[in-house]
Design a protein around this nucleic acid. Structure first.
Lengths: 159, 159
DNA sequence: CGAATTTTGTTAATTAGGTAAACAGTTGAA
DNA sequence: TTCAACTGTTTACCTAATTAACAAAATTCG
């Protein structure tokens, strides 16, 4: 890149403050989300758990005997999308599908000991990843951010 | 759903406050992002512009003669991913690829009058969508949210 | 009761968004 | 001049997610 071109590229970046996009919450939300997702993958990745698999395991550990439909509703995804996630967790030996005598349609999801152990390790790694990724923010700022994001999430049930 | 099952499902949702996930910034960021994305699509959607196409058009209008590589860097995506976006905008007649005599590799992106007009309509719709979607938030809260998201985005250049 | 509706888990097909690798042509630097 | 780097592009691939259909089971209602 010539010095001239370099200056031109930097000019675009420096002038970005003047872009409409920078004032949009949606745009900033997406850019921030991509950064956090990338760092999450670097942390749990290298064929570790994806965010979806991690979330599913977390909820199964917290709410043993949850059904797949309940889990899908809680995670805000389709039942069909959950099958592969639960397959993955069952293959890893982290949980089992258990028949429920009172309703033969459903299969309750129960974490194994290995699943609970894996989750304990994973949540530790995730918290460490958030600690370093958000180290420039004070605890107050983090709580403020959380409460504002939850305010957006209050829209979750509008269909 | 039986009343019993209903109670059980609600119990899971109500108890969600006790889930580790709810305390994670990453999880809340993703859930909030999904809501905003869904609403954005409902607004500009119905074969309108996707967020990516809208962003690209916005930057071409703001920085005419930007090149595809510069645009990709600014948007934080790969050059290869931009080709389809620019194709789409060119097909719609919203911008043109223009040869640059001083560097025969690059093609400068210049918006057409139709492109500028379409963008003006689009940004108006997007602002309206954000106004209603975030109507529960005060202006102060919106600015706080923006500044916290930008704090996360400060990590954007860490590779 | 019996018929119609709903729910559950599942598969298959499709889409959106995005990355990575390779390429030919062009430019810049040693 | 040769080597490295950059540009736009194509191709192949991947992940996340949705929709539609389905059979089995459960629930609702006439």
């Amino acid at each position: 890149m010539t010095p001239q071109k370099m200056l031109r590229a930097e000019a675009f970046e420096d002038a970005l403050g003047g872009s409409d996009l920078e004032e949009l919450i949606g745009y900033n939300l997406k850019r921030a989300y991509v950064i956090v997702r990338t760092d999450f993958r670097k942390t749990l990745g290298e064929d570790g758990m994806s965010a979806r698999v991690f979330s599913a395991l977390s909820l199964c550990v917290r709410f043993p005997n949850i059904t797949q439909s309940e889990l899908a509703r809680t995670m805000g995804i389709e039942r069909s999308g959950l099958v592969a996630i639960v397959d993955r967790l069952e293959d890893n030996g982290y949980l089992r599908r258990v028949q429920v005598p009172t309703d033969r349609r459903v299969q309750a999801l129960v974490p194994t000991d290995a699943g609970r152990t894996a989750y304990r390790e994973a949540i530790k790694a995730v918290r460490a990843h958030e600690d370093t990724l958000f180290s420039e923010m004070t605890d107050d700022e983090k709580q403020t951010l959380l409460s504002l994001l939850r305010k957006i999430r209050a829209r979750e049930d509008d269909e």
